[in-house]
Design a protein around this nucleic acid. Sequence first.
RNA 1: GGGCGCGUGGCUCAGCGGUAGAGCAUUCGCUUCACACGCGAGGGGUCGGUGGUUCGAUUCCACCCGCGCCCACCA
Length: 861
Amino acid sequence: MVRMSDVPNPTHPIVLPEKPALEGLEAKWNAVWEREGTFRFDASAPRERVFSVDTPPPTVSGSLHVGHVFSYTHTDVVARFQRMRGKAVFYPMGWDDNGLPTERRVQNYYGVRCEPSLPYDPAFVPPDKPGKQPVSVSRPNFIELCNRLTAEDEKAFEHLWRHLGLSVDWTRTYATIGRRAQRVSQAAFLRLLAKGTAYQLEAPTLWDVDFRTAVAQAELEDREQPGAYHRIRFARGGGAYVDIETTRPELIPACVALVAHPDDERYKPLFGTTVETPLFGVQVPVRAHVLADPEKGSGIAMICTFGDVTDVTWWRELALPVRAVIAANGTLRPIVWGSEGWASGDAARAQAAYDQLATLSAAKARARIVELLKEAGALIGEPRPITHPVKFYEKGDRPLEIVTSRQWFIKTMDFQADLISRGRELRWHPEYMQHRYENWVNGLTGDWCISRQRFFGVPFPVWYPVRADGSYDYANPIVPDESRLPIDPSTDVPDGYTAAQREVPGGFAGDPDVMDTWATSSLTPQIASGWLEDEDLFSRVFPMDVRPQAHDIIRTWLFDTVLRAQLEHGTLPWRNAAISGWVLDPDRKKMSKSKGNVVTPMALLEEHGSDGVRYWAASGRPGTDTAFDPAQMKVGRRLAMKLLNAARFSLMQAEPRGAITEPLDRGMLTRLSRLVADATEMLDAYDYARVLERTEAFFWGFCDDYLEMVKSRRYGDFGPEAAASANSAMLVALSAMLRLFAPYLPFVTEEVWSWWRPGSVHTAAWPTPEDVVAPIGGADAAAADVYGPAQEALALVRQRKALEKRPVKSVVTRAVLPAALSGLGPAARDVQAATHVRDLSFAAVAEAVIEFEEPASPAAR
RNA sequence: GGGCGCGUGGCUCAGCGGUAGAGCAUUCGCUUCACACGCGAGGGGUCGGUGGUUCGAUUCCACCCGCGCCCACCA
């Protein structure tokens, strides 16, 4: 019996297009889905029926590229699968418009520059075209421009995502600079502050001299840079000396000590003595520390405040003084020798030397000091050019400096053990990505610096009392009540104060900094889930089910999010982490804009169809970098086309229908039910690529072999009952296959579904193995064993025809096939009909024997 | 220096203890009444190298080579 659910509903008669086509399906179905609210989240669903996704908010200041299309498709496949399994899918979309990339884009786009000291100008209109000189604008004006440009970007992004077919609930979007994100970021921060988990500290901090902001350890990258070892002579008195090697001679005025390994016999006698810096005549101690490498350079190094992070370690552990020379803008700051502890044996000479360096950038100062050292005879030999890795801010253009400044930190070092165990609790897809996380957590060297000296970001919601002398009392910040959030301390006034008291003695001053963009995006689960705003929603979707993201930001976004959830809720933010790879260009390099190899996603979607592009994307296995391959998109498009045609064939003569009795039909369905079982299990494990591969292989076999074999029978050549069996089986199979393909090829499957079934395939129930074999009264293992041999028998006859270059329809008088195939039984009739074999038999032959009918000679006619 | 991943036909990739697979490309053939955005068939690989475990290894183990990514205190 065919179950009613697989019989076309009378109110939905089968309506087939004359010539099915893929063109225009995206627009057609997106409009319907939007109208019907197909992907709207059911906010009344209990937690156990919810599947929630912590969608990565794309950076709107950039443009979307194929890498986005790739990874977002993976997430969408999983979301659609879960929806079909009956889950209420919480699938929001965020926009990451917060932070430096947006600032930079706004500066270039409008030709402006933020000048926080300026007052707000409500009448400000940006220039039509950016001028040569940037226009200075106030911070509120600047933020307005950021908001304006990102709003436009977000529209373009949404259009592309819809065209791609992401089943996002578009009523649930957020922006990382939006009110909700600010409120969550500020509230979470204040709670950490109250617990003492957030703190501020004046300390040496990694500093980008162009952006003039602190940056975090996670935002560093190494770049190979040309440099040179300079051998520099320090005098020990009495004509003795010691030589050090350095790549940064311009920091000699910032030198506070020399250091060598405690076991280094060469320098043991110097420990505890002092030496004199060249040019500046400063007495600095020689100290011992195990980090000093006897093999490197001369085995003894100078410690400066601060040349690199090792200097910071030495400075801290050896309790050395600070003599900082690098200013926030990366130049050497003016210094008056003889004051502020800038002692020298010859202050006049030191001043004269230093004056030639002051206000120069580090690079220029380096060139200058080399000349001075040469003249003074302190440079030994010529500088030896080397290439060495130098730390950069990942978005920066010049090497990082280390500058002492007051910054906010979130404690991480105290929680390393908790973070490791949370990482083990999380289910990683693929599993090996967990190593990267543990690697990072174990390698942490300091707490997380979350303050940035920038403008377009979430402000720190604190003020400081201004003392009588005008200085700020940082130790006693004034905090707002959580109910007031979000606030901007540069415009809002703390309770108990008036606006007139801003920055006057006895009054208050706002914290000028904004939070690191990761300090906000580490809260995307809370922001998206309605934490503090909609506790009912929050309880239904948090902790979320999955965080999809790429592997390059495990150390930032993933780690930070785990940290924040641990600190605030004491839980994981989600149960699963689904890690995508990158899209590589054919040269095996990561595709990026700078390499000029990025293809516009919309052009791809238009050329290959969204389903075609999704097919390529979905074939990229979790975590695996995948080559950009338009050929695969063509294959995907062809698959979509094949679905249209195979469905049309199956549906074009859907009568008569009835009991599925024929072995081939029963075998095909039993095979299909096994596929459904495997597919479900694999999708549960996020192995979407394998499911697509398996489903596709089955489908092509269905088209090329099964449909060809039953064609004659379904046309009625063997009576109505045999035809009914074929017709019914085809419809059951089509229904299941459409649902298996639906997460991957949402447009073509919806189109075909609409020809004969009510509702959307995307809200139809995911097939179960039991569903598929229910119409044949359960799995038929014997029939399933016939399916493969039937395909083989078909192949043998086809092969012979091809080898003899006979037309497909040429008649074979007799075919003797290997006895191994003899189990075909009644199914042999279908093979016979499909291959035009009059007399089909099976015998113990090594090779198939196939005899053709000779064409009748003209004479005989 | 540490960690992780990868090395299978020209290309892109599956497979993973028992006689090598797919798609693309290539060659040959086919106006076959769902589809020429199609259909059928052929050729093409000592599964990076060397050892080991095993009756048997592309598949497990060890070492090595190559590629990629992540991390590292890079004076």
